[in-house]
Simulated assay, not measured.
Amino acid sequence: MINHNGKILEEEEANIPVLNRGFAYGDSVFETIRVVNGKIMFWEDHYFRLMASMRIMRMEIPSSFSPEFLEKEISDIIEANELTNSPARIRFAVYRLQGGYYTPATRDIGYVISTEAMENAFYLLNEKPYEIELFKDHFVTSGLLSTIKSNNRAVNVLGSIFARENSYDNCLLLNEKKSVVEALNGNLFLVKGNTVKTPPLSDGVLNGIIRKQLINILKKTEDYQLEETSISPFELQKADELFITNVALGIQPVSRYRKKEYGNTTAKELLGKLNVKARLG
């Protein structure tokens, strides 16, 4: 079942026109949201990021789009798919309505909410080998547009194809200044001693929900010093740990980059704290 503009429809009935602007121009933004037993994880952060993304894209935000309204829209589709008592992954996509070419005929929007069942209620540490490489064919542009989740993900798609063709589990993306920005599907953290680094939003980093949660956790943890600073590719092989974060997986430790192998002690500790924060809401 799909929630299309507030109507619960069978997937085959939830049709979008071929000239939909999300398809034609990538004129769309989305949120990937984790729901556990009917509870939306980090809902306030998701809501405000979605609103910020729509403003950056100069979309008209409907007056009905209150946190309570959208929360109910998500709950309705969770219930319709009989996932109320299970972990689920939500994709909440907002697109500008059809019309115009590069210049839209309207700023009004439509939305689609889809669901997918997940296996685990809370985040588990994946300790299987996880090898990464740099993707250098194309770059992320530093700036505000790169911080939002839009449908313009060509670099991520091409990087994912490169990773699969070369048997890597993931790749790291660079910006035009040759700084490491993020992974194909999440934010990057680097650990060296008791210092934890993550690239700043000004480098073109996705404004990730789990990134924000870990930054808040680290600021309250005396054992580590957090630095939001640009990361050079040369720093990667000097690090003790590398890990990737996103809302679906939580924290994914990297085990190998080129000839360097990494531990996961910090990732394991932070994952425990992240799960506690998720439970407390």
Rank of each mutant, 00 (worst) to 15 (best):
L124F: 01
F42P: 08
K212A: 12
S75N: 13
I16Q: 01
T141G: 14
F234C: 14
G99I: 04
V205M: 01
A267H: 01
T245A: 08
F30P: 02
Q237R: 14
E176T: 15
N194M: 04
Y130T: 06
I109M: 08
P87F: 09
P104L: 06
G281V: 03
N15W: 13
A88I: 09
T245M: 05
N166W: 12
R211V: 02
N152T: 04
I33D: 04
T141F: 13
Y262C: 07
L19T: 14
P253D: 06
N275E: 00
D169S: 08
A117P: 12
I217V: 08
F23T: 02
N187M: 03
N207Q: 06
F243N: 03
G204W: 10
R49N: 06
F30S: 07
G204Q: 08
I8H: 01
Y130L: 09
L70S: 05
L236A: 00
I217T: 05
S179G: 13
S146H: 11
I251Y: 03
R153D: 06
T245W: 11
M41D: 01
T198R: 07
N185K: 03
I90T: 05
V140M: 05
E119I: 01
N207L: 04
Q225V: 12
S179C: 14
I210C: 05
L125V: 07
V254N: 07
E131Y: 06
G193N: 02
K7H: 14
L172T: 00
S114M: 13
V247E: 06
P67M: 11
N185R: 13
E13N: 15
E165T: 12
S146D: 11
S202A: 14
N275L: 08
I217Q: 00
I161D: 09
G281T: 11
G186P: 10
N187V: 02
V196P: 00
S167F: 12
G193P: 03
A117Y: 09
P62N: 03
R279A: 14
S167I: 10
G143N: 10
V94S: 04
N170A: 12
D108N: 15
F65R: 11
F69V: 13
L70G: 02
T221C: 06
N156W: 08
G110E: 06
